[in-house]
Write a protein that binds this DNA or RNA. Structure first.
Ligand SMILES: [Mn+2]
Ligand SMILES: [Mn+2]
Ligand SMILES: [Zn+2]
Ligand SMILES: [Zn+2]
Lengths: 140, 140
DNA sequence: CCCTTATTGATAGTATTTTTCAATAAGGAT
DNA sequence: ATCCTTATTGAAAAATACTATCAATAAGGG
């Protein structure tokens, strides 16, 4: 089920603004702030308002169609999300990101955490930082 | 090496503001926003300005004396950090957090990520969400 | 093609974060 | 203890970021 089906099947409309945002975020590996999304789309001729960027980011987040990434400096940005459970890795140099879905088995770790903290563990937020292929060449 | 030694040995001063902030954050399990830190300290009689909260959070983050946590809703807050490599778990209900240092061995996962994404993997940001002991009782 | 209403853009309002700068206090030297 | 240097501070203002309101628009079912 692609993003249009996901939204439509939940009673949401496939609007210009949403198509433009999804297209941009799918094409971009670097996490973009709401402002950056807005600027990029205006430059491409879109008449979208910044307010709609915020509104739609909220909606798209609700349906896991975009993901919020946290840069090493603590700044947040948005990228198109993968399907199903997945995580992202972010280049420390150029901020470019990639998705990985070869996901870990945390059952053992979770047991340790529950023993140590007395919390019941639910889900998690995991993000890696590293060097993208391009920046590996530049910064040998 | 405690936080005072860490700062002092790097040429920073142990100020009222920093002592108040570290004391508050060490006593509190719930991640606090800059504004919340400021309000709490003012209520305790501190004359500290909000600006110093921001400035000192930056400094304390630089020396890993406080950690930024991301709530499930995307909001960020600060808590006192543990020593060495560690992570946090956050209660989905009351936001209370705990530290765990029984840390994972990610070497196998990292190999998979590097194979799949062609990135070179460095460090990571990992945070768990769950139910704290108190909220387990309330929400049986 | 029409009708309903979710969605939008503009505007205004609120909240958060950063910049600037003179006053203060931390801590090494005397 | 007292002095000196300057990192640090608080207040004020500026700049950003986000949210609420509302009339106009366009998405999409009939
Ligand atoms: Mn995972
Ligand atoms: Mn770890
Ligand atoms: Zn890169
Ligand atoms: Zn709780």
């Amino acid at each position: 089920m692609n993003w249009k089906e996901k939204l439509a099947s939940n009673g949401h409309r496939i609007t210009q603004a949403r198509e433009q945002m999804m297209r941009l975020l799918s094409q971009t590996q670097v996490p973009l702030s709401p402002m950056q999304i807005h600027s990029a789309l205006r430059e491409q001729g879109s008449k979208m308002g910044l307010v709609s960027v915020y509104r739609n980011l909220n909606l798209l987040m609700d349906y896991d169609l975009v993901c919020m990434l946290v840069a090493p400096d603590g700044n947040a940005g948005y990228v198109a999300g993968g399907t199903g459970h997945h995580h992202h890795i972010l280049c420390k140099v150029c901020q470019s990101s990639a998705i990985f879905d070869e996901c870990e088995d945390f059952s053992e770790l979770i047991s340790k955490i529950e023993a140590q903290t007395q919390f019941v563990v639910g889900d998690h937020f995991l993000q890696f930082y590293g060097l993208c292929p391009q920046c590996q060449e530049t910064y040998v």
